[in-house]
């Protein structure tokens, strides 16, 4: 154990949050998660070796599992993955230096959770629909069909660009419709960039506890209305990853 260690910070919580003894942190073997307190705040941390590469799948999963689990019982400000400090003193200094901002941000998150609504176009439904409505694209598709890319590249790029624009327009419309439908039940929303070329919707919502049921029912209705076209998924409840940001520590 000669290796130098530091403290990996998961998130900031009110000081009455207590990690359960079996909460598993990042690293291998998984570090024990403890709370370091200052005034009415605490940071959830675990010890990590400073030479150990961080960010393996298990690390990311441990980080998210801990934060999501915490968010279910208390407000939590996620701290960016990979933030490590020298020791308990540095954690206390950090909490002390930003006490008011952290406390205010936590107060805003009280009884609020993030849900991420993610939808992906069904490839065949999307393209079939697009080609049915766009005769030019359909004609082009017929021309390139089955021909090697090398000899149809120009046309393929043109066809692909037409489809891409069509998907983009549809994506904008679907995102707008989703935000419209859910605005009555969400405190805030953040549109997320598409994670694939067939992304249909990708929006994070901050939802208050008493609106959760209505919110979920509305997402279900939205999904039902589009079941042939979009594969809809609801992620959450999550910690409010998309609703805290760098700006909160602006000096």
């Amino acid at each position: 154990m000669a290796e130098e260690t530091g403290l990996f910070i998961y998130g900031i919580v009110p000081s009455d949050v207590e990690p359960t003894p079996d909460a598993e942190g990042v690293g291998s073997p998984a570090g024990e998660v403890v709370a370091i307190r200052y005034d009415d705040l605490a940071a959830l941390v675990s010890e990590v070796g400073l030479e150990e590469p961080m960010g393996r799948p298990a690390d990311l999963t441990a980080y998210e599992t801990l934060l999501d689990g915490t968010a279910a019982v208390a407000p939590v400000l996620p701290v960016r993955f990979g933030t490590v400090v020298t020791g308990p003193d540095a954690v206390e200094d950090l909490l002390a230096a930003h006490r008011d901002e952290f406390a205010a941000a936590l107060a805003e998150l009280e009884d609020r959770l993030q849900y991420t609504v993610h939808g992906r176009f069904d490839e065949r439904a999307m393209l079939g629909g697009f080609l049915a409505e766009n005769p030019d694209a359909a004609a082009l598709a017929q021309q390139v069909r089955g021909r090697p890319e090398a000899e149809s590249r120009e046309q393929r790029i043109r066809l692909g660009e037409m489809i891409s624009q069509g998907v983009e327009l549809r994506r904008e419309a679907e995102n707008a419709a989703l935000i419209d439908a859910l605005t009555p039940y969400a405190v805030a929303h953040v549109a997320r960039p598409p994670s694939s070329e067939l992304d249909a919707v990708n929006v994070a919502f901050l939802v208050a506890g008493d609106a959760e049921e209505d919110f979920i029912r509305t997402v279900e209705d939205f999904a039902e209305q589009r079941r042939e076209l979009i594969r809809m998924r609801l992620l959450g409840p999550l910690a409010a990853y998309d609703f805290v940001g760098a700006h909160q520590l602006a000096e």
Binding site: V48, M54, V79, V84, L94, Y241, G245, L249
Partner: peptide, 17 residues
């Protein structure tokens, strides 16, 4: 995502691989 703690302003932040 998440709160960014700036090593320039906050003492004790360690860079890790």
């Amino acid at each position: 995502k998440g709160v960014v703690i700036d090593a320039q302003v906050t003492v004790g932040v360690v860079g890790i691989p």
